[in-house]
Write a protein that binds this DNA or RNA. Structure first.
Lengths: 119, 119
DNA sequence: CATCTATGTTGACACATGTCGAATCAAAGC
DNA sequence: GCTTTGATTCGACATGTGTCAACATAGATG
């Protein structure tokens, strides 16, 4: 059991929402908080929108750039709001367009939950 | 583009279901596959059950050890089946009890999706 | 074989969720 | 002001999902 924590890609100061999934059983409260984040990525359309934002240059994109996912524009807006409520995206209006960008710290925390459990 | 893959904790030979979320926009098909895994962990009860299995000694546990999550026994069985269908858990009957264990490769793949996107 | 215990399956129900069309808001340009 | 374009909100609907009680199944034990 190598306990060497050598993950160069992960920030060491991500807020520790919850312990790694294999450290101890999650409490009910921890599970509610953590499941909400996984749930936000648990829809194909939302995952595509999120990936489109994350892969866009600068880590941000306006809605007009990513709304080509096969659903109507209100539905796109609905999903973006859910991702925003889950803390995975942040939005900002600049003139005519609204830009969404990823929230890196939360994403890193989710990654740690899984990568620590995958050893 | 730095293509340096330096993640010591992660198996290099995990089946590459999908690219990291920030590499390029996911296709519809990739999003469906990936979202299914996130969705499986998007329920508090399932997340607690999964964490209970993952944190149990040996990475496996019988249902009787983890079914104390505040819902009825059929509901526990229902959620375990969903985790199994999503490929996150595997089950095996040994005598009276049924043991569940985590599927490490799939978990690592999910972790890579996020940690690569978190840089 | 009968019975007990541990799990899984089925059917039903309330509730959440994804989706769209229509209406609304916000900024820019005429 | 009025219109146009981009984006969100609202109202409604169909579908999906979590939950439980009841029943079914598998294995162990008498």
């Amino acid at each position: 059991m190598s306990n060497s924590r050598a993950l160069p890609l992960l920030d060491p100061d991500v807020q520790p929402c919850c312990p790694p999934l294999n450290e101890r059983p999650l409490t009910a409260e921890e599970a509610v908080r953590t499941a909400a984040m996984f749930k936000a990525l648990g829809d194909p359309v939302r995952l595509r929108l999120f990936s489109a934002v994350a892969s866009h240059e600068g880590g941000e994109a306006c809605v007009c750039d990513i709304s080509d996912v096969g659903v109507s524009q209100p539905t796109v807006s609905h999903h973006l709001k859910k991702l925003k409520d889950a803390g995975l995206l942040a939005s900002e209006r600049r003139g005519t367009w609204v830009y969404y960008r990823v929230e890196p710290s939360v994403l890193a925390a989710m990654g740690q939950l899984l990568t620590s459990a995958a050893r």
